[in-house]
């Protein structure tokens, strides 16, 4: 019996931060000393390689591993700055035509032999791509944002995960805007956890640095960045490892005086 944690990172809706979360959690776990592999299960629209800055180092993919035309070690791309992290790239989009749940299970079984954590970056949607990825996972982290469409789609995914027996399923609330929440113009943390009835693994504040880091292909958790999102992902990784880290409080989010002044200057009076 393997002690590897195989975790599906999924959301239902696209664009809520699955791949960003996978990249940042992967790096954070690796930095905390866990041997971690991130598996890009989004064969149609792969991007995990790009966010990790590994896009130019891909030689083989999951496809060649499955076809046994290369060894797993040849396909794995090791991160140069963080050697505890490896990427198994997604294969050709044409794989979608024949890929079955048992194929994903076979890939994951290979990875579980040598890693502590297998993070699966799930495609958006609830079709075959999702089902293949979910079949290989033991537990799941559902990413959502405090928006109606994202929460609704997350609910569909949670229902499917429950029927597949994936357990535990935890929630990450991404792109939280503390100011909008305090003005009650955004669903609160409690609203979302009440509606979805999942334990909250973490919340991540909206943070411009995320875009900067993806531009560079260097996840925020790679450096000791003090940006809110970097801290949030670090905290989530620690909680996954079983540490008790308090959740961030949106109402306590610090807003610098300068930022406040700038906002004031831009406020339309009428």
């Amino acid at each position: 019996m393997s002690t590897t944690r195989t975790i599906l990172i999924c959301s239902g809706k696209g664009g809520v931060g699955k791949t960003t979360t996978t990249a940042n959690l992967g790096i954070a776990l690796a930095r905390q000393g866990a041997k971690t592999v991130v598996l890009d299960a989004d064969f149609g629209l792969r991007n995990l390689d790009l966010l990790l800055g590994l896009e130019n180092r891909i030689v083989y993919t999951a496809q060649e591993v499955l076809a046994e035309t290369c060894r797993l070690e040849q396909a794995l791309v090791k991160h140069k700055q963080e050697p505890n992290l490896a990427l198994l790239p997604a294969g050709n989009p044409r794989m979608l035509e024949w890929l079955k749940p048992k194929d994903m299970q076979a890939i994951v079984a290979l990875l579980e032999r040598q890693f502590d954590y297998v993070l699966i970056d799930c495609p958006a949607g609830i079709e075959d791509g999702f089902k293949n990825a979910a079949a290989a996972a033991r537990e799941a982290v559902v990413i959502t944002t405090p928006e109606v469409a994202a929460v609704r789609d997350a609910d569909r995914v949670i229902g499917l995960l429950n029927t597949q027996g994936v357990q535990p399923v935890q929630l990450v609330l991404n792109r939280v805007r503390p100011k909008m929440m305090s003005n009650q113009e955004m669903l609160s943390v409690d609203d979302v956890t009440d509606i979805l009835a999942l334990p909250l693994l973490g919340l991540v504040f909206e943070d411009e640095q995320v875009i900067v880091s993806t531009n560079r292909g260097e996840p925020l958790t790679l450096s000791d960045s003090s940006s809110p999102a970097a801290q949030a992902y670090g905290n989530i990784a620690q909680r996954l490892q079983g540490e008790d880290v308090p959740l961030m409080d949106p109402s306590q989010a610090r807003r610098g005086l300068r930022a406040k002044m700038r906002k004031l200057m831009q406020t339309r009076i009428f």
Binding site: E147, V148, R152, Q184, E185, M186, D191, I195
Partner: peptide
Amino acid sequence: ASAETAKERLQLV
């Protein structure tokens, strides 16, 4: 506030 509306609409749907 729109958060309340969002919550009610979500619960129904």
